[in-house]
Simulated scan of single mutants.
Amino acid sequence: MNETSERSPLALFASDVEERKKLSSYPEPFRSRMSKRVKRPLGDLFGINNFGVNLTELLPGGESSIMHCHSKQDEFVYIVSGRPTLVTDRGEMELAPGMCAGFPAAGLAHHLVNRSDERVVYLEIGDRTPGDSAGYPHDDLVANLGASGWLFTHKDGNPY
């Protein structure tokens, strides 16, 4: 047993976990689009390193991310409450509590948008495969996962 797992809680209420302080790692003008998103990182509290788990809240008008697709990371979402709109390359659909959606690496570009008047709460789960990158089909943005986190450039390679 490692030191982290010895200090980790056995269980907790996800809603009691402190909100992530950092709004987003996106550069502007994209970061401010995340102002109606609140993430509570859950997996890290248990010493989980191979994948991330967040309890995420979208206020009305909020979006989960910039529409994107990962090269290596698989992603999964489970809707706890509210009715977000799932936007993908194949179109849009409203999701409801109890529904889930999965996005294999190199699959559909996607994101969630809260077009309702109520908050949306969902679990997001994604792996942390080294060497991942993300493409953003509707924006001049590319992300590459480096040793110190996500590095963002324009599609022509110039940094933000």
Rank of each mutant, 00 (worst) to 15 (best):
M1K: 02
E3L: 05
E6Y: 00
R7S: 09
P9F: 00
L10A: 08
A11G: 05
A11T: 03
F13R: 09
V17D: 03
E19W: 04
E19H: 05
R20A: 11
K21Y: 06
K21E: 13
K22Y: 00
K22I: 05
K22N: 03
L23F: 04
L23Y: 03
Y26M: 09
Y26I: 08
P27A: 08
P29L: 13
P29W: 13
R31P: 02
S32F: 03
R33L: 13
K36H: 14
K36D: 11
R37D: 10
R37W: 10
V38C: 08
P41Y: 14
P41M: 14
G43F: 15
D44P: 10
L45D: 09
L45Y: 11
L45T: 08
F46A: 12
F46N: 12
F46Q: 13
I48K: 11
I48Y: 10
V53G: 09
V53C: 14
V53D: 03
N54S: 15
L58W: 09
L58H: 12
L59D: 14
P60E: 11
P60I: 09
G61I: 12
G61W: 12
G62W: 14
E63L: 11
E63V: 11
S64V: 08
S64P: 12
I66G: 04
H68S: 12
S71W: 10
K72Q: 15
K72W: 08
D74T: 14
E75V: 08
F76N: 10
F76W: 15
I79C: 13
V80A: 09
S81R: 12
G82H: 07
G82E: 06
V87K: 03
D89V: 04
D89P: 02
D89E: 11
G91L: 05
P97M: 07
P97W: 06
A101W: 14
A101D: 10
G102N: 12
F103H: 07
P104T: 10
A105E: 10
A106G: 13
G107A: 05
G107S: 07
L108I: 05
L112I: 02
L112N: 01
N114Y: 00
N114Q: 05
R115S: 01
S116D: 04
R119G: 00
R119K: 10
R119E: 01
V121W: 06
Y122E: 01
L123P: 02
E124N: 05
E124P: 00
G126S: 05
D127M: 01
T129F: 00
T129N: 01
T129G: 00
D132E: 09
D132I: 08
S133W: 04
G135Y: 00
P137Q: 00
D139I: 00
D140R: 01
L145Y: 09
A147F: 07
S148K: 09
G149A: 04
F152L: 03
T153S: 06
T153A: 03
H154G: 03
G157K: 10
G157R: 11
N158Y: 03
Y160R: 07
Y160F: 15
